[in-house]
Design a protein around this nucleic acid. Structure first.
Lengths: 252, 252
DNA sequence: CGTATCATTGACGTCGGTCAATTCGTGTGG
DNA sequence: CCACACGAATTGACCGACGTCAATGATACG
């Protein structure tokens, strides 16, 4: 199991903030270049995870906070009997692990979809750092507030849209989100490390029904999934199928 | 239409922060008593809304931020064809209207369930206020982060729980949330201004199915709804029906 | 009283779930 | 290079939870 590009496992260096791949996206975006060393001194190092591994699990105490540098993850919750809800697909630049009470136990889990490299912040004194750097605090608030928006969007899909609309909406949203973030070639396709089961667990569907829905969309020439990549063949008609609201494409 | 207690409409005075009913709950909780006048000078006044009125609507520019002082509201999103998803039940002490980009258009609407009194903050310079008061900024972050938790909880319900589990979970969660907040008599009942349609729109169900589900729970002696009040008759068995996770009762 | 809103209930339909078999794809060992 | 293993994708047959439609009550309010 490894990323599409170069494997991460084994590379043991620590990313310098000044050369950080997500300099423009992560928590540190509003931090002045010449203040960056304050954050860098605070940073506890990098962490590398293989695809399929959990970064943390619901019920554990929170020890660290993370910015994803490379690779994809997802956040999820489990019910007692094993039913799973995936709450968020995490892309490079996303900040994970924050919760209202940093002393409390974690209320959700996080798992790597691909091999992943993370920037690690110690939990202790994290609020101090924010107090000392109001810009950081405000940026954090905005990141979290954006999570609320995405989460309510998803809730609206799962609560009120048909399976077809949900899948179309999800794929299109993911597509735009990835395209905004990756400086990658601007083709009409993105990497697709999610299985149909992942998609189902994100949308409140079974993988079987996701499969049928994807086949419909494929048969109609709207999308294509091959080689672990998602191709958007007809964005307009896909947006129709999604009942997509173009406004909701803010800075994700 | 009016609140269970005294009607709000017509009372035109402005609540003093020092006598604020939600002093211990709202955004200002961490603000020192002797600093409170800074916030008070920032406050733009009170606003009163009748039950059923919208405070703001999706797509409008954001002008103000609010703390609910009295009464209940809900946040919701509409699809083009009118389907509605209720994202949050808003109680006194809750802060509403914040979004990642304060310049952007609102991505959701807010409506009063009962008559409501709000504390109004101007949107402009709100971030300045936060910059000047790091405690406020951090408190805001925590409030927003708590919204994420609640939203993901709801998502998990809607995505992965049966109608029965959803309804039981929702009622129990609301019950605890209200009880934590109101200094009210600690009986086993709370006010219930929500219609069955509201409950359905919050849980991704139709009002008809909510009705049937409520009847089941009532027939089994778990709950009772009468006189616009919800009575929890058997919290333990209701928690069973919900597959309720007792951990998730943090400081809501 | 008349009207409006909400709750309730029955008959019936369907979207999406369940179960299970088959195929595909990719990585592994011989 | 081939045989095999294992997870994921695919497909069909069937089913049931929840939605739709529509009628009837119950309450509240002007």
């Amino acid at each position: 199991m490894h990323n599409s590009s170069a494997p991460l496992i084994g590379k043991k260096y620590t990313v310098r903030c000044s050369a950080c791949r997500v300099r423009g996206w992560g928590l540190c975006e509003p931090i002045h270049d010449d203040e960056l060393d304050v954050v860098e001194r605070f940073k506890a190092g990098d962490k590398v995870l293989e695809a399929g591994q959990d970064l943390f699990r619901e019920g554990e105490p929170s020890r660290e906070l993370y910015t994803v540098l490379e690779g994809w993850m997802f956040l999820y919750k489990l019910l007692e009997d094993g039913r799973r809800q995936i709450a968020k697909i995490v892309l490079p630049g996303d900040f994970v692990g924050f919760q209202p009470d940093l002393e409390a136990l974690l209320d959700h889990s996080a798992q790597a979809l691909t091999d992943v490299r993370l920037c690690v912040f110690p939990r202790d004194n994290f609020l101090e750092l924010n107090r000392a750097h109001p810009e950081l605090a405000i940026r954090l608030t905005c990141l979290v507030a954006h999570d609320v928006e995405m989460s309510r969007d998803r809730l609206t899909s799962v609560g009120r849209r048909s399976a077809r609309e949900r899948v179309a909406h999800f794929l299109l949203g993911l597509f735009y989100r990835v395209r905004l973030r990756h400086q990658e070639p601007r083709g009409a396709s993105i990497p697709m490390p999610l299985t149909q089961e992942h998609i189902g667990d994100a949308l409140g569907l079974t993988s079987v029904h996701v499969n049928r829905t994807l086949r419909n969309l494929r048969d109609e020439g709207l999308i294509e999934i091959a080689n672990r990549r998602l191709h958007i063949l007809d964005p307009d008609r896909l947006a129709d199928a999604a009942g997509f609201d173009e406004d909701s494409l803010g800075r994700t």
